[in-house]
Design a protein around this nucleic acid. Structure first.
Lengths: 154, 154
DNA sequence: TATTATGTTAAAATGATTCTAGATAGCAGG
DNA sequence: CCTGCTATCTAGAATCATTTTAACATAATA
């Protein structure tokens, strides 16, 4: 099914790209380039990070992935290009999909003459795991990136 | 008015910080750290970029500025911490405020047990200037950053 | 097979942000 | 007025994500 989709759009299905597409297929974890690289490297030890970036950009231009600007400091990628929104845990930075259609429109008075083409909602909150460990030094729950930890106070 | 607000919260009002606060006061251009630095440097030639970052972080922790993750590759800062949303021109990356209250809530089925604390809507579109120059090579309108130019295809 | 375009790679370059270490300023106690 | 403390400032180094470069494959094509 993948093969057909890229025929005749100037996109060569190299083994590296196949591996990336394979990793992305149905992946709803919103991985960063680094994460994709790490995962794909296991099957493909000579893979270069640059190839990951190149491929992601090629896919983005073809509308096959969405680039999320939701995490300060790094991009995340979403193979689901259909309309949906995201719920972000301010504790561990986990991102989950929100598949609800809120038909939003900006009232003329606020539109400043822009031609509006789309929208994206970020909901913020605490996931069950992070909510639990709020109190003392319970080291139990989710492992948070050093960056996420430093950002405490959101 | 500024002075009082920071009394007794462990925040010294140094001249550098005053200059930054002064630049931010009522500023709705959503500047990056670099832009703040450039502006404040004029009045304060010895200012260090690190001081800008330090001050912004101190302000963020006190809830006096919001860090926007709206621009891939750099943070932008918003001194307006009240609830509002943003409209982003995909041509020139200009960001304007949208002061409308959409009371959104995530239906239980999609909430995944998160405790939701807030939300932020990004509207995308083309500003009048960028809409105009869409056609030929009319060099007239807005100057776009090299990064914005490269991102064509959003 | 020669040609051309497209991909891959490692390494260097860039840009944003953070960290480090030493210099300074303002203040409490003597 | 001195001494030490703590918060802040600054330049520069370090780090992290991303992009670019240059040289080398590879595939599709003439």
């Amino acid at each position: 099914m993948i093969m057909e989709r890229y025929k005749g759009m100037g996109f060569k299905l190299t083994p590296q790209r196949l591996a990336i597409l394979d990793y992305l297929e149905g992946n709803d974890s919103h991985p960063s380039a680094e994460e994709i690289y790490t995962a794909v490297s296991k099957k493909f030890p000579t893979m270069s990070l640059a190839t990951v970036y190149n491929t992601l950009e090629a896919l983005r231009l073809r509308g096959e992935v969405r680039e999320l600007t939701v995490d300060p400091g790094k991009k995340r990628f979403d193979p689901d290009t259909g309309p949906h929104h995201h719920l972000i845990c301010t504790g561990c930075r986990r991102i989950v999909d929100v598949r609800v259609d809120f038909s939003l429109s900006v009232p003329t008075g606020e539109r400043r003459d822009f031609e509006i083409t789309g929208n994206h909602i970020e909901f913020y909150g605490l996931c069950p795991e992070c909510r639990g460990e709020a109190g003392a030094g319970s080291r139990s729950a989710v492992k948070r990136s050093s960056r996420a930890a430093r950002k405490e106070g959101d």
